[in-house]
Write a protein that binds this DNA or RNA. Structure first.
Lengths: 126, 126
DNA sequence: CTGGATCCCTTGTGATACTG
DNA sequence: CAGTATCACAAGGGATCCAG
């Protein structure tokens, strides 16, 4: 992609583009919680996920953090926020169609994490 | 995977395992730089990559950060560190066979980042 | 060139208390 | 229940100087 000058430069250019793209991804999805939240929501698209439920589902996250992270995700069109007309009030969060585009990312991270745990075991034995 | 008690619990258990696995991944690969470094190195397995060269390749990273991140990656067996017998001394870094296991992860992030940029364009037009 | 040491500012994150 | 406000601290990260 992009302007192709010659064999030597093509690769250079695309590598830099790759790094830039990764920077974007990391900026939006980075940090300790966002991908966990996204994964949690993708695993429960069938249910209503209100604030407290999500907080209980993601071990260790504080209300403050969860609120902030959800807001960020909403701004980036990855989740929706819906105020339910209940008493007391609840707010449901759901992953958007676009938000589902990050499933491959979390899939890879889940796999890698599981694999890494195996790797560590091996290393200890060796 | 894991112990299967009944239909209802299976999904619960595996979901928590997924989140735990992701936490591991995020802990090891998280932050602003590590995945960029890994990507940089995977794109240049054929070459010798010494410290300064990497720093130049990854826009904006300071020597302090690069040194720290490379050390972390080395501890986790993702990169190797080789002191070259040159004058003045240079040190080469290379991705390990195991380190290549994160290529799928960075691939997904690159793709997502590129895709996201398109998405943003669309949104602006709408 | 590599990269440790130091200083310092910014940001992330947690704890707690509080409001609608 | 949802979410904000506040305080407080740890971690992230930049700049600079310096030594092997």
């Amino acid at each position: 992609m992009g302007t192709v000058k010659n064999k030597g430069n093509v690769r250079e250019a695309s590598c830099q583009e790759e790094l830039t793209a990764m920077r974007d991804s990391i900026e939006i999805l980075g940090g300790k919680w966002k991908l966990l939240i996204m994964r949690y929501l993708t695993n429960r698209t069938a249910e209503h996920n209100h604030f407290k439920k999500i907080q209980r589902g993601i071990n260790g996250i504080s209300a403050k953090m969860l609120a902030k992270e959800l807001k960020d995700l909403e701004v980036n069109l990855l989740v929706t926020r819906t105020i339910q007309d209940t008493r007391p009030v609840t707010v449901d969060y759901a992953i958007t169609a676009y938000g589902k585009s990050i499933i491959p990312v979390t899939d890879m991270l889940v796999q890698w994490g599981l694999n890494h745990r195996e790797k560590i075991k091996e290393e200890v034995l060796v």
